[in-house]
Amino acid sequence: MKYRAHLSAVLAAALLAAGCASTTTGSVASGGSARSQLLLVSPEQVMQQSLQYYDQQNTKARAQGKLVTSGAEWNRVNTVMQRLVPHVATFRPDAARWPWQLVLIDEDTVNAHVMAGGKITFYTGIIRKLRLTDDEIAAIMGHEMAHALREHTREKISQSAAGDMAIAIGGALLGVGEGAQQLAGLGKQLALDMPFSRHMESEADLYGLELAARGGYDPRAAITLWQKMAQQGGGGGPSFLSTHPNSGDRMAALQNAMPRVLPLYEQARARR
Rank of each mutant, 00 (worst) to 15 (best):
V77H: 03
Y123A: 00
T23K: 08
I120V: 15
K119N: 08
A184L: 14
D218C: 07
Q49A: 13
K66G: 01
G237R: 04
A212T: 04
R150T: 00
L264A: 08
W74F: 15
E266M: 10
Q231R: 14
D134W: 01
A95Q: 01
A96M: 06
Y53A: 15
A61E: 01
W226Q: 03
L225F: 09
A148Q: 01
K119H: 14
P219Q: 05
Q231E: 14
C20P: 00
Y54E: 12
C20V: 15
A95G: 03
D218E: 13
V68M: 05
D193C: 05
P93K: 13
R97C: 04
W100Q: 00
A270Q: 12
Q56G: 15
I157W: 15
V176R: 09
D218T: 07
H152F: 06
T25C: 15
Q48K: 09
I120Q: 02
E203P: 01
R35V: 09
A162M: 04
E210K: 03
A230E: 09
K60S: 15
V261W: 01
H113V: 03
L174F: 09
A139I: 03
Q57S: 12
V46M: 05
L241Y: 11
L51P: 01
S247H: 02
R272Q: 15
M258A: 05
A9V: 06
P99Q: 08
L11M: 11
E266K: 14
E201T: 06
L262M: 13
D55N: 12
W100A: 02
R97A: 11
I137A: 02
R154V: 02
V176M: 10
R4I: 10
L130V: 03
Q52A: 15
Q56T: 15
M47G: 15
H244G: 06
V80A: 03
A72G: 10
L130N: 02
E201W: 03
R76V: 03
T69F: 00
C20D: 05
E155I: 01
P195C: 10
A116Q: 15
K119M: 07
T109D: 12
S242T: 04
D249M: 12
L104K: 02
L16N: 05
A168G: 09
F91P: 00
C20L: 14
Q232D: 14
D218W: 03
H143Q: 11
R128N: 14
D94T: 12
Y265P: 00
L211I: 09
